[in-house]
Amino acid sequence: MTLKGMNERGVSEAIGFVLILGLMITSIAMVTLYGYPVLLKEQSNTDVRNMERAMIVIQNDIKNLCYKSVPYEETALQVSGGSLEVVDAGAALSSFNITTSEGFSTGDISLGKFRYFSDRGSAVIALENGAVLTRQDGQQGSAILAEPRWFFDDSTDTLVVYTINISASEPLSTMGMSTVRMSLTSPTTVMNTSFGASMGVNVIYAPDTDDDYSTGWKNYLNGTLDMAETAANTYTLTGVEKLIVKSYTVTVHSV
């Protein structure tokens, strides 16, 4: 291309080539430096969000086992960007204890859990006692993603608490495409305690210090169930005339 009236004697073919090449290399370098990590981060976020949904699917399976008299559940799910493990109730360090002001106590109930660790990020998602909870590894605090089905019936002043114990005969963990097979193990124990007058019921959560979901449980018990935090990890509901604690055991056969 020759522009009219311009003298092109100073135009160098070599310098032009070097300029274009430099521009291309700089562009490629910028994409590699900034763009690629963004892509990886997005991928990791997508994996974690997919896993949140997968955990809610497992939670629904457990709901079917416990509340709808379904004896066996099998779900295929994709575990990507991390690993899913099953912590047996015997190996779990967190527990619940339900007591009343009259001296009734269930004792510490260890629960076990499903737990997902992200490889690239720090997200941890757990399914503990029928609730899906999430936290960031190495940081304090946690959030509840899907709530368990505890409820207080105003009409009869009855508090219904479910404890769901996850049991596995051996340590299980998985990555990639997996099939979660679970069944309900008998017997389901029901503690049906009637008081003559209205009582205070305490729910005491003892967290595992390395895998602490106390903030998530606090938000649930304070918020949804309107319990008051009377001491650290101790939540009290007053005005209860009848307390029902149903304890289920879900056996995980494989993941």
Binding site: L39, E42, T46, N50, R53, V57, N60
Partner: peptide, 17 residues
């Protein structure tokens, strides 16, 4: 590529009845 990453989330629903 960014958009395709996002689209993996679309279309998945939980099995909650």
């Amino acid at each position: 590529a960014l958009i395709i990453n996002q689209s993996a989330l679309v279309g998945q629903t939980t099995s909650e009845a």
